Amino acid sequence: MNKTRGYRILALFILVVLCIIPATWAAGTLDYTTTYTITLKDDGTALWNVEYRTPLANDSDISTFENYTRDLDSIYLPEIESLMKNSAAQAAAGTARQMTVENFTGNAAVQTNPTGKFGVVTISFYWTHFAVPDDGLTVGDAFVGGLYLSKDNTLIIQYPSGYIVSATEPAPDQQGSNALVWYGMRSFGAGEPNIVLEKTAFPPVPVVAGFVIIVIAVAGLIMYRRKKHDPLPSASAYSPEEPDDPSPPLSEADRIGVEDRILQQLRANGGEQFQSDLVKVLGIPKSTLSSTLNDLHQRQIIIKVKKGRENLIRLAEEPR
């Protein structure tokens, strides 16, 4: 047997061997559909789930289904395990990549839903190094001779979150969230279906949104605690009238001259004026004006009245 012919036999071998149980149903005239679901992992391992589903129209169908699945664990599952191990060995030889199939489980049950009763058999196992992890995942070379889906067969290949499909051959019949779907009847060529998956550069939107929400919440909490424990200074604690341009001390004559100018300006303005306006009108440095006003206030010649964030200067001996 040459290598190419061996690969072709393997292509049929992988899916046909999984039809051992349906073959027994055929003798009992039970129709069935088959769904192959291959779930990829980041390390290239694939979880295979093969589901056979047949409608059970009457008690005779139920009896037939139960009779043929009674030997699932003792006969059919060991046969499938043996055949799939041979298939993985052939695929490993064709890809030069070590492969194993392991952890086989089988389950049979009668299920009832609104459309009727169904007999369902599920075979599951893991296939290591099924895909090639390399800055993404590449799938297909394990199907060295291609695949064939008969009528009423479905192939589903699921991939992990954080990946996008950059190429697939042939194109799927349906593409959903992290899943590619092909329906029978159809044939795949050697190494097909071939899928190239790339890792996304950014985390999924829900993760980003969650991170932003956390950042906003933390920032809000910090601002709340800061306002609670470090309130803004009140108008009395901060006044723009305080000097910010210290000047040299005045002589006695200069001090009296400044006092006279202040008192004259207050009398000309009805007996009161804001300190900031006195600075502008008289052209006196803030520090000089502030120290002079403090001296006049101590001698009870003027009164300082707080008005918001400013000081209103008022003559003490004259009515407002």
Rank of each mutant, 00 (worst) to 15 (best):
S161R: 14
P170Q: 01
R320S: 15
D71Q: 14
Q275V: 02
V218K: 01
K227M: 07
K304Y: 05
R320C: 14
P231Q: 01
S60R: 09
L12N: 14
F188R: 06
R70A: 13
Y183M: 13
L15R: 14
T100D: 12
D245A: 04
A253V: 11
L221I: 00
I313Y: 10
A171D: 05
V279E: 07
R186F: 07
V132S: 12
G271K: 03
S234G: 06
K304H: 06
I301N: 08
N269T: 02
K307N: 09
T105M: 10
A217N: 00
G270C: 06
S291Y: 05
R70N: 11
A219L: 04
T200Q: 15
V165Q: 08
H129V: 01
T29E: 15
V281C: 06
D230K: 00
L296W: 06
T200W: 09
Y126T: 14
K306L: 05
Q265G: 08
R226I: 02
F65A: 03
V144M: 13
W182S: 07
I9F: 13
T64S: 12
I20A: 15
E241G: 00
L221N: 00
T105W: 09
V205L: 10
Y68E: 14
T39K: 05
T100C: 08
G162K: 03
F211G: 09
K227Y: 05
N86P: 07
A209C: 04
D244G: 11
S239P: 04
F65P: 04
T35S: 12
S236Q: 11
P243G: 07
S150Q: 14
A57I: 10
S166M: 06
F143M: 09
A88R: 13
T128Q: 06
E241P: 00
N153G: 08
R226E: 02
W25F: 14
G220P: 02
S150E: 15
Y52R: 12
K41D: 15
V17L: 15
E198G: 08
G140I: 08
Y238K: 07
E317L: 10
I284Q: 04
I303F: 11
S276A: 00
I222K: 00
G136L: 08
D73P: 03
P114L: 08
S166P: 02
